[in-house]
Design a protein around this nucleic acid. Sequence first.
RNA 1: GCCGCUGUAGCUCAGUGGUAGAGCGCAUCCUUGGUAAGGCUGAGGUCGUGGGUUCAAAUCCCACCAGCGGCUCCA
Length: 966
Amino acid sequence: MSTPSTPPATPPATPPTATTATDDAPPFRYTAKLAGELEGKWQARWAADETFRVPNPGQPGFDASRPKFYCLDMFPYPSGAGLHVGHPEGYTATDIICRYKRMAGFNVLHPMGWDAFGLPAEQYAIATGVHPSITTKDAINNFRRQLQRFGFCYDWSREVGTIDPGYYKWTQWAFVKLYDAWFDAAAGKARPISELAAAFEAGQHPARFNPQAAEISDTDKARELGVWSTLDAATRRGVINSYRLAYQGTTTVNWCPKLGTVLANDEVIDGRSERGGHPVLRKPLKQWMFRITAYAQRLLDQLEPLAWPESTKTIQREWIGKSEGAEIEFRVGLSGQTQVALTVFTTRPDTIFGATYMVVAPEHPLVEAVLASPGARTDAAKVIAYVREARNASDVERQESKEKTGVDLGVDAINPATGKPIPVWVADYVLMGYGTGAIMAVPAHDERDYEFAKAFVLPVVEVVRDPAPPAKPPACFAGDGLAMNSVGPDLDINTLPTQQAKAKVIDWLAQTGRGKRRINYKLRDWTFSRQRYWGEPFPIVFDEAGNHYPVSPAALPVLLPQLADYAPIESDDPQPLLAKAGPWVRTTAGEAGVDPVLLAPSTPVTRECNTMPGSAGSSWYFLRFCDPANSAAMIDPQAERYWMAGGVDLYLGGAEHAVGHLLYSRFWTSALADLGVLSTAEPFGKLFHQGMITSSAYQRADKTIIATDLVHEASEGRFVERATGETVTPIVTKMSKRFKNVVNPDEVMEQFGADTFRLYEMAMGPLEASKPWNTKDIIGPFRFLQRLWRSCVDEATGTLRVGEQPPTEALSRLLHKTIAGVTADINAIALHTGISKLIELNNELTREVASAGAAPRAVVEVMVRLLAPYAPHMAEELWQKLNQRGLIADAPWPIHDPAMLVESTVEVPVQVLGKIKARINVPAGADAATTEAMALAEPAVRAAIAGKPIKKVIVVPGKMVNILTG
RNA sequence: GCCGCUGUAGCUCAGUGGUAGAGCGCAUCCUUGGUAAGGCUGAGGUCGUGGGUUCAAAUCCCACCAGCGGCUCCA
């Protein structure tokens, strides 16, 4: 027997009169209009109450008894086009998780900010003259408005933007911190540069250039410098600089003339810029670089325990690209008696007896040495022509053909193992940027060397035997095996397995001074200069001799100067745009804020005119969210220790940042932790990638994609291009303005409301999968919300329609099953299956409403809380109607009763010879004998057995019975 | 070429050895003062293909096919 509920405590002020559907709809049906009203109402309430503001330790209202949960979204670049439907996918997921965590009793840090430096605003400025800060701020305001429309539970009091001077002050500060630091290989961590200088002074550290420095030549590295105090100032400065984590190096960079800037390797795809697809050239340029390579091993080791997708960890490992092997020195004879050393890196020192020739990269210094002092066979003209052509080739051209090309340098090296001469070639399949830029070629056991040897008819000597050769042995065996043909004057590794052979060769190399064990990494130092305007200025000035000095922390930030125009400087050589700001560029040490101890205040200096790349501000923003307004420090240590303990608890964003942003952030965090700024070296304890939301488009026969508005459906399922009449194939692909298949979230919310939008995007499929947007499917989640609303609310009066009667046993069981399921699903980030469970619960509830006349209050009070993370606005409204105090956002998360999950009887299928013949209901927990007896008593089973002898009966209690007959 | 992921109803996806499921779509009927709607009922599946293991395979193993993503001369 149900009792009518009391009227709601707070009836809506004005009943909705119209709907998008019809004017005849009941006044309190859940329509887009009603949804919009509820959503506005609750968003205003959350904002007014500062519901989602979370205090730091030590601040009023901080509850130390609650565990912390730091949930971070990758902050967006606020483009002028506004949000697309891909943004809210991840943001909705984290919002659901954060709302659940709040209800489950956590202190939740869930911030949002803006990655706002970047090229698009600057290109707009070039075209229109509008300052990038204006367009960027407009875009930010639009993004914020759109995000707030979704009802996300961000703590907006913590909002930061990388373009705020109060923010980039600390980006610059971090740069100086790394500039004033070196990596102590012995300690395995970064230390202040002053400690290195002191160690040099005290003679505790040998006075020499950093042997790991990429920017220092081998000859400088080999120099014995002697006693530190006897060195001249320039040498000492050069030595110190070679250790700094931020240094100036002249490297071949990816110069994009069209964008007027240098790009990082991960910003270049197939020789073209990731942004815009413009051609990229390789040019030598003096750049600020970060010595991230010093951290290669740390970045590998620290990666292991992280709760990241295994695929992303693999990508990072491969990007760092550790390979273990040996460095081997070969003597090369030039003209006359001249000999030079040629050092190679190899992972297969065990194949040294099979090294029948050598190859150097076109950029290798040996090429110049040979041309200066040619051998008897040297064809200088041919070498020069080849090297010139190879050097001028862009990356695209080099990759176009894998045909092996090369030229004999006409000189010989001595294979140290055999003592025999082998020719030295130059070829572009050897890359200057990897290892030493030179290889010993072992054509019998390396595919590339084999192809080259085949093309130029060079000898192939087998030195490794495949212990288990396949039926069709390949021409070239690159695996591990047993050494053969490997005896020389003073080394014999015959019959040794590859691993042992490697060890023995390395020992021999070390003993005879011809080489040593070496670990090589693919990872390169991080190019940190850009020649653009809209980025952080470097806190660096140069004296007239070109020496660099940091701006002292007290003088930060170095503000961006105003420019009259933002067009790139027309020049064959890369030129930074800030060079246009003459009066800003030419200043004095005192005005720039250089420490007077370093440089007298009156000294004329010029400022660094490059700016930092977009990845500067994003390498540490997760730290600033912990303490966004601090003007005295990058981050308060207490706040950092609290929120960053174990790293961010959940970091959600696209997989496209697997190596760029995620690696850079790890490097900054590790280095800043080494230097005592942070307590945690790894920024992101748990990482999750959401999939891309795709959309439909059409593809021509030649695989090009055509915009949706240029196609029509000629007949059922057949699509043709209007202009040509050519048949096109419907496909799913990423959303793009070009394909005219972009969905605007504002319009969707206008039609259905934010709760429906959130539900739809989550119900599309697993968060990590890429999923096509189907506008016609949105009605599904909308109807679910409508039905749920109707289960609880009288559509004619808007009053609650719940009864105080106890729920039926079945509904009660389902309710507890749903609590357990939804909770487990949220914890597992399986948000789509959680929605299904809520739909099923509501379906059962609808049946109960139909029979009893009202929904049991006990069920509704739980169901609404389960709904709250997904559809927070409707949940708040129903919570209020249920006459509950306070916000549902602060309500406790329901806990299920495990006893209610135990079924009293279970249905068990009975198979005869593996085919299901009947289903029987047995008491839960019935043993095998009972189950078997019940199965054999079932008439349909007896019929299937048909009197045949029973050979065996398999019973899995509670699961199934299988009867095998003879 | 290498690595990874995916392949289940028309569509999008759950289901990790033991009864093939959900939402949307589709069909039938009901309601026609809830109607760009609600409800009832239903159809629809060689679980990519082939082999193997097992009493039993969508699920485990092997091979192959297709699609998607990443890397790509890394010595």
